[in-house]
Amino acid sequence: MKKIYIAGFDVFESNSIEIGKKYVQLCKNYGFEGLYPLDNIVDFNQEKRKIAQDIFKANVNLINQCDIVIANLNSFRGKEADSGTVWECGYATALGKKVYGYMKKEQNYIDSFSKDEKNVIDDVTYDLENRVIEDFDYPINLMIACSIEKMVFGEFEDCLKEICK
């Protein structure tokens, strides 16, 4: 049975355990074993940096075990995907794992900026700090968009359906 690592900022939600159980069950329903980061056993009665190291090592171990990563690439605390999730995608890609991402909105990255958040000069779009906003017709930074197997517009289960095609 192929294993899927479930990446995303869902681990920060107040109902993260329930979300994980739901995603693991969905994986099972589609014939996969789901590996959810919060299923790791970590001793939280240690100093914070030791806890962080243990979480990191446990999640890396899950990625090493998996065949596929499904990543929630929706915006998190801003306009970009969660940086930890992005790291996991890059690591998995470097290992030769198949990575699928999902986002709720199908829009070009540049369109995530409102008119008040950007300026266009000579057909180049800049943010308010005068930095170029990339425009490659992807919903996310090109390094993620070009490295994943498939970007799915929808939810976690929609990625599972895509994998099973």
Rank of each mutant, 00 (worst) to 15 (best):
A81W: 00
V152G: 06
K115R: 10
I70L: 05
F153P: 14
T85E: 07
S75K: 15
A52E: 15
D39F: 03
M103K: 15
R49I: 11
S114Q: 14
I148A: 01
C66T: 13
K118A: 07
N108Q: 08
K161V: 08
G96F: 04
Q46N: 06
G31Q: 10
D158Q: 14
Y102N: 06
Q107D: 01
C89A: 10
S112Q: 12
D111Y: 03
N130F: 12
F156Y: 07
G101Q: 01
D67I: 06
T93R: 05
G31W: 00
E129D: 13
F9Q: 05
K48D: 15
G8M: 08
Y36G: 12
L35F: 04
Y126P: 04
I17K: 13
N45T: 15
A92V: 10
Q25E: 14
D39N: 10
D127Y: 07
E129G: 00
A71Y: 04
E162H: 01
M151A: 02
L26D: 05
F32C: 05
L160N: 08
Y91I: 00
I110M: 03
P139E: 02
K98Y: 08
I70N: 05
D54K: 07
A58G: 12
F12W: 13
I63E: 13
V11F: 05
I121K: 13
D82Q: 11
K105P: 01
A71C: 13
A7E: 02
C146T: 13
K105C: 07
K48H: 09
Y30S: 11
G96A: 06
Y30N: 00
C159P: 15
S114T: 14
C27T: 01
Y100S: 11
I41N: 15
E155W: 08
I133E: 05
V132F: 02
Y126L: 04
E88S: 00
V120H: 01
V69Y: 00
I19W: 14
F156G: 08
I51Q: 10
S75I: 01
